[in-house]
Design a protein around this nucleic acid. Structure first.
Lengths: 215, 215
DNA sequence: TGCCGTTCGTTATAAGTTGTAACGCCTGCA
DNA sequence: TGCAGGCGTTACAACTTATAACGAACGGCA
């Protein structure tokens, strides 16, 4: 998935084992969450002893980091595919929602509670920028038609994160709202905080989206 | 804080030690997150040996559960205080934001990524209902004046979670939006996803709130 | 005042975890 | 065919949560 098939047999074998390790890690995370990831358990399931894994990953953090990068890459691909027919904020939002519900722990791996000490490597911020660009592209069609808000004025002077993008402040505003509303519904839903409430989160999601695009 | 001062000296001593354990746990969580909570470390800092703590808490989960309940209680109190002058959704929202920023890990303890296997005890759902009631009370003033949405219609038939509350569907809708928008901005902010973006999340938060109350 | 039981804190132990070190095999390259 | 490097192993260290068993201290009660 990430490693290209290499020239030498050794490297090919190595990347194959790395992929297999990640596969086991993914399914373990999907069922028990990232905090329950155990290198020992993965090793046992692969029929080899604990320390063997350290030939392939420097440690737990290294493995998780690569899973995070894979998750980002997968999300970026999904959103890219959704934007293929043309930029459309609603299509983008629904694609992201589908992607999250398809594997909740993978979503939480990216947007869930972070480990306080952990700092993301550059790869991650690069893909995050890519996601932001797609979001801005989608929000650039049908730009909002409403009076300037205080946030718009603020974003006029604090748009470093979109310096490369020609979108006007109102579009930046809309992109941020889309992102946070999406995440607001999604993360509470995935965390089970709607559990006993018996309403359909998809409709709340749709309502938030429609309200955003109605301006 | 939670235990009442008891009759016998033994019980008084016991509740005092329990409180001291929680105090250490709280500050440990505040700096390193809930996943890094170590009973051994707490014991050492209190000058006693590891297994001694098991006289006071059945285990790690038991301690965390009590911290979660305390956090809910603290949040409920903060929102109660904010609602004292009279129901006001904006005041409630800002109180919740202040409470979260005051101790991010405490907020994440409640609304962060949950452990897949874990199931909250009844106390928690009771306080959660209390929070929901305050939210509905606040949203009941200045009810939204807008045409009925599909979500409104859906909530008409799926309002078990607000069965005891007389609020109309549009108010339920607004309460849900307030909650999810609040959490959307807050959790991304606390997770550091706005890190390199250099805009002020407080203004985004204010804009989301104003948009919600403008209808 | 003295006794006696409950509770507390201890050490020892079990079963985990991550991660390092040292050793041998086996592969694949020259 | 030889040999160097990668690979997997066992052994070990330093952690963690959690239980068991023992001794001491404390408090209620006669």
């Amino acid at each position: 998935m990430t490693e290209t098939d290499a020239a030498t047999p050794r490297e090919r074998y190595r990347s194959q084992v790395r992929a297999e390790i990640k596969e086991h890690a993914r399914e373990q995370i999907a069922t028990a969450g990232a905090s329950a990831l155990s290198l020992n358990a993965i090793a046992k399931r692969m029929g080899l002893s604990g320390p063997a894994l350290y030939r392939y990953y420097a440690g737990r953090d290294d493995l998780i980091t690569e899973l995070v990068i894979d998750a980002y890459r997968s999300l970026a691909d999904a959103l890219q595919a959704a934007s293929a027919p043309g930029p459309d904020p609603a299509a983008l939002a629904h694609a992201m929602r589908r992607w999250a519900l398809d594997d909740p722990q993978r979503y939480l791996l990216i947007y869930g509670t972070p480990v306080p000490g952990y700092h993301a490597p550059d790869h991650v911020t690069l893909i995050a920028n890519e996601l932001m660009t797609m979001l801005l592209d989608a929000c650039s069609v049908t730009p909002p038609d409403r009076p300037t808000t205080p946030l718009d004025a603020h974003l006029e002077n604090h748009r470093d994160w979109a310096a490369h993008h020609p979108a006007p402040p109102a579009v930046l505003h809309r992109a941020l709202s889309l992102w946070t509303r999406l995440h607001g519904v999604l993360s509470l839903e995935l965390a089970g905080h709607f559990a006993g409430m018996a309403f359909d989160p998809a409709l709340l999601f749709a309502a938030e989206l429609e309200d955003l695009l109605a301006d």
